[in-house]
């Protein structure tokens, strides 16, 4: 296949749209959470202001090379995840750099950022960061397991590892969506989704009230700003995969915004209703509820 250089600016445009959308959406979801607590909550542009402020701080200190690289790894994990997945189905402009085996690559990128973060936070030498990393990695590995199972089940179902092909197979009416053709896999994946969104009940890793704020304890200024960018980007990139795999993808930006919002709302909805799990509780929860669903979905395909 001929590589089209024009794809690079298009991919950057996608990135720009998604980062801004992610920041607005993040604030919006927080506002919904605040409304449930009868507060007004932060303004929707607060994330943008925080970002400018953190880039604008004058001093920053370092704890070593890996401390620099941690946020960079994290961000490249998010960017990679987004860029190797077709964002808008059927659009030459926004299909990005997707290729035949991108499903496996996406699964890998989901983990890549967390590992970089673990190394960076470890180098900061702060005990709270180390505790946060341990908690984060164990919970995340467990939460990813049902998703991986669901992905295999879907790959078997459609006999392909290309996300573009999977989306194409789901076109032509809602009943063609994986949601209806393979409900068990979707159920397992949506439970795993809760675990990876860092919202309650699974936010023990990053919640400010727990061991102070977990892995990013020592991060500040521009490091923190990089991580904030990723915090805006990563959930959306993740949702794009879910949307493509289970909910028929999106053929235009309005459909994209709408579906992403609804999927995000699912985690917010669960988050405001249920209290926070400890790590061992959440691991047990995933093992009992989500993993059997995933196994079952593979068996049934």
């Amino acid at each position: 296949m001929q590589f089209e250089w024009m794809k690079i600016p298009y991919a950057l445009l996608t990135l720009f749209i998604v980062v801004n959308f992610g920041m607005l959406l993040g604030a919006f979801i927080q506002k919904i959470g605040a409304r449930v607590g009868r507060r007004h909550g932060i303004p929707v542009w607060q994330n943008h202001i925080d970002l400018i402020k953190n880039y604008g701080l004058r001093s920053s200190i370092t704890h070593g090379t890996m401390f620099y690289l941690g946020p960079v790894f994290r961000l490249s994990g998010g960017v990679g995840l987004l860029l190797f997945v077709p964002t808008i189905h059927g659009s030459e402009m926004f299909s990005n750099l997707s290729f035949a085996g991108d499903l496996i690559l996406a699964l890998y990128f989901v983990f890549f950022g967390a590992l970089g973060m673990a190394l960076g936070a470890g180098e900061s030498g702060h005990p709270h960061a180390a505790i946060g990393v341990t908690r984060g990695l164990s919970q995340m590995s467990m939460a990813e397991l049902p998703f991986a199972l669901a992905t295999f089940s879907i790959a078997l179902q459609y006999q392909t590892l290309s996300i573009t092909d999977i989306v194409a197979a789901q076109q032509g009416g809602m009943l063609n969506w994986t949601l209806f053709t393979n409900p068990l896999a979707v159920a397992a994946a949506m439970l795993s989704f809760l675990g990876s969104m860092m919202r309650p009940p699974f936010d023990v890793v990053l919640a400010p009230q727990e061991i102070p704020i977990g892995p990013p304890t020592e991060y500040h200024s521009s490091y923190l700003a990089l991580m904030q960018t990723n915090r805006a980007l990563f959930p959306i990139a993740k949702i794009v995969i879910y949307m493509n795999l289970f909910f028929g993808g999106a053929a235009s930006w309005p459909v994209f915004f709408f579906k992403v919002f609804l999927i995000y709302l699912w985690s917010a909805f669960v988050g405001v209703v249920f209290p926070r799990f400890r790590v061992e509780q959440s691991i047990r929860w995933f093992l009992v509820w989500a993993v059997p669903l995933g196994v079952l979905s593979i068996l049934l395909v």
Partner: peptide, 19 residues
């Protein structure tokens, strides 16, 4: 709390002095 809700004014609490 809902009565005063300082988050409206861009005021947030951070648990670590670094941030």
């Amino acid at each position: 709390t809902p009565r005063f809700d300082a988050y409206r004014f861009g005021v947030q609490w951070r648990p670590t002095p670094r941030q």
